[in-house]
Structures are given as C-alpha cells and as structure tokens.
Design a protein around this nucleic acid. Structure first.
Length: 275
DNA sequence: ATGGCAGGTTATACCTGA
C-alpha cells in the first residue's frame, strides 16, 4: 500500500527576515503571488500576537499559522498551506524571547524556525553581552540538536542564523573576519551546530563553494546592488532523513530592490518530503 | 578608512539591527 498522500510531492519552503511584518504585509502578498511558497517562515516580525496580521495571511492562502511575537523586537512565524499536527517553541540562550517556533506536519516532518541573536558590534563575549548571548544561543541549539541526533529524522531548520559561514558567503572574507557575523568564533560555533546532527546546508549543495551567494545587503549602502556588499545570513538546513529530496534553492535577490524592501531577501527551497 | 539607513517605541531620542 502506498504511503498516505497527505502532502504534495514537492514542497516549497521559504525563509525571510521580514523586518516588520505589518509594515511589509504587501511585500509578503507579492512574494506569495509571484513565488507560491507552501510554507513561509518569517523572522523579525516585530509584532505582538494581538496585532499580528493573521487575517491578511489567511487570505493569502495560509490556512495554518503559528506565530509568537513581542513588542518592537524579534518575533517568528510559520505560515502554511499544509496542515500542522503540532505547534511549539523552546528556550535557547537562557531566554524565552521570540526567536524560535516549530511545527510538525502531518507526515511527521518538523520545521524549526530560528532568529539567532545578531550579537552587537564587538566580537568579544567578555566585553559585549549581546555577543555572549549569541554564542550561548548557538551552544543551546547545538545541545538541542545533539540530543535529537537521528539519521532518519525528518527535520528542516530554517531562519536568520545571523552568521555567514563560508568565505564566499560574504563580499570580502578578509575585510569581514573581525566583523560580527563572519568571525571565526561564530563560524566555528555554527559548524559545531551543523555537525551535531550532520545537517545539510541546502544552498551550498546546489551552488559551488567558490560562487558568491548572499541573502542580506545593508540598508546603509548608497546603492546596495552596485556595491554588492552582501552576506548569506539566512539558511535552510535539512536533516539526513530529508536531504536526499532537495530539488532547488533560490535566493530571491530582486526582492531587495522592491519598494520598501527588507534588508534580507527570501530563500526558497524546493524539496520532496515523500521522496 | 569611514559612514552610511531603517523600524519601533508609554517616541519626538534612543534602542535595535549586522
């Protein structure tokens, strides 16, 4: 007897640091109209639950919604056209601020949406509590992943991880070595997390390591496109039980040029969950 | 080598981002 056909054969899952979901709800609608994600994971929604635009997202076709936000900062959401069997969150970095939310789909696939702390300006945990918080958060993620180590688990980890790990995940490896998001201590912490359950960095499966690949461009550049000083901060990772189903990963650079754009662009992975 | 922008708030100055 074939596996129950609860889910479509290919699923498109998007991650996007939206930098205020209320301000950019029109951009979300345009993304949905033009790119048709089945599941949309947002970070930095900056909206408490009572003002989260759930109605507008329902009208876009997301019958299933999980969100948790706080006033002015943080906030994560998972919007889905596929049903949820469970919604939950866990504490990382010693706080229950709104930086993680997870759902389970009907076939048992888990989706974990993270907003890792940015870490402030000074890459020294002794001098900068924000950097200490970032490292603590990553250490907790690593322990969390190691405790669930499972070669057959079906998990997707997405989000703004606020680290560009590889040389060509930033515009200048040399010039960013002491800049928070690309320092060796952060990259090593992210690599430990990835190794904790042999996660696949989906974007780099299909794009060679020598090719520049970004998901974020600063608001501060006079011309972000011309300067092209980007970083790959937004990630889609697949557990071993799902990595074989990966079909495509798109970094939607043109969206950085939309009116009233977020400084991050969506990353969309297409994968077979039942493959 | 630096500075540059943007969103939100018990706002009109200061915190966050990275």
């Amino acid at each position: 007897m074939p596996k129950k056909a609860v889910l479509p054969s290919l699923v498109r899952i998007a991650t996007w640091n939206i930098n205020s979901v209320r301000l950019r709800i029109g951009n979300v609608a345009r993304l949905v109209a033009e790119h048709a994600p089945d599941i949309l994971c947002l970070q930095e929604t900056k909206a408490m639950d009572d003002v989260f635009p759930a109605g507008a997202l329902t009208e876009m076709g997301f019958a299933w919604r999980a969100f948790r936000g706080e006033k002015g900062y943080n906030g994560v959401a998972i919007l889905s056209k596929l049903p949820f069997a469970d919604i939950r969150f866990e504490a990382f970095g010693g706080r229950t601020d709104c930086r993680h939310i997870a759902v389970t789909l009907q076939d048992g696939t888990e989706i974990h949406n993270f907003y890792v702390p940015a870490g402030g300006d000074i890459p020294d945990p002794e001098l900068n509590p924000k950097f200490r918080h970032k490292l603590d958060f990553l250490a907790d993620m690593t322990a969390w992943s190691a405790a669930r180590r499972d070669p057959s688990a079906r998990r997707i980890l997405v989000g703004d991880l606020n680290i560009a790990p590889q040389e060509h995940d930033v515009w200048s490896h040399k010039q960013l070595l002491k800049i928070v998001s690309h320092t060796p201590v952060e990259v090593e912490a992210l690599n430990r997390l990835q190794a904790a359950d042999q996660w696949t960095d989906a974007a780099r499966v299909l794009t060679p390591a020598e090719q520049k690949l970004y998901s974020w461009w600063s608001y501060r550049a006079a011309d972000w496109d011309k300067a092209d000083r980007g970083r790959r901060l937004d990630h889609v990772w697949l557990s071993r039980g799902l990595s074989g189903g990966l079909k495509a990963v798109d970094h939607l650079r043109p969206i950085r040029g939309w009116e009233s754009a977020s400084d991050h662009v969506p990353v969309i992975a297409t994968l077979a969950l039942n493959g």
